[in-house]
Simulated assay, not measured.
Amino acid sequence: MAVELNHTIIHSRDKRESAEFLAHVLGLGIGAEWGPFIQLDMSNGVALDFVTLPAKMAESIVPQHYAFLISDEEFDAAFERIRARGITYYADPQMQRVNEINHEHSGRGLYFRDPSGHGMEIITRPYGHTEDA
């Protein structure tokens, strides 16, 4: 039996703002609005469905973490879009090393927040990767 993640719902203060923000950073297009969702399709078939929470609920969004494995070329392009837009980025998940990238797992990575406060990460190598592996 093959089990795959098909989609997940990301709670947002404004689904369009959040979907467009992440799509811009990753260089993706957004899907059409479908019911209460705006979908962002990843190349591995997983969809991120952004939904706007009612105002009272949106105040208490629990930040989640989303990590995206991208190529070195995609990282360069995303990093340039992040810097061009003035988005604060960090080298570490605690978000202490401001405006630095990391070189963990024989690659590069960085963290940033989306408009709803979720922690986003882009990496060029999966965790545990080494040049010798």
Rank of each mutant, 00 (worst) to 15 (best):
9 I>A: 10
11 H>Y: 11
11 H>F: 11
11 H>P: 01
12 S>V: 02
15 K>S: 06
15 K>R: 15
16 R>I: 09
16 R>Y: 08
17 E>Q: 15
17 E>F: 05
17 E>M: 11
18 S>D: 15
18 S>K: 01
19 A>R: 00
20 E>M: 08
20 E>N: 10
20 E>C: 05
20 E>Q: 12
20 E>V: 07
22 L>G: 01
23 A>W: 01
24 H>R: 13
24 H>G: 09
25 V>K: 05
28 L>H: 09
28 L>V: 06
28 L>G: 02
29 G>I: 05
29 G>D: 14
30 I>T: 09
30 I>C: 01
32 A>D: 14
34 W>A: 13
34 W>T: 14
35 G>I: 07
36 P>W: 09
37 F>M: 12
38 I>A: 03
39 Q>A: 15
39 Q>W: 12
39 Q>P: 09
40 L>P: 03
41 D>I: 06
41 D>Y: 08
41 D>N: 13
42 M>N: 10
42 M>I: 11
43 S>H: 09
43 S>D: 13
43 S>V: 07
44 N>D: 15
44 N>A: 06
44 N>S: 09
44 N>F: 05
45 G>I: 06
45 G>E: 08
46 V>F: 12
46 V>I: 15
47 A>G: 13
47 A>C: 14
48 L>Y: 07
48 L>M: 14
49 D>E: 15
50 F>L: 02
50 F>N: 00
52 T>I: 06
52 T>E: 10
53 L>V: 02
53 L>T: 02
54 P>E: 07
54 P>S: 05
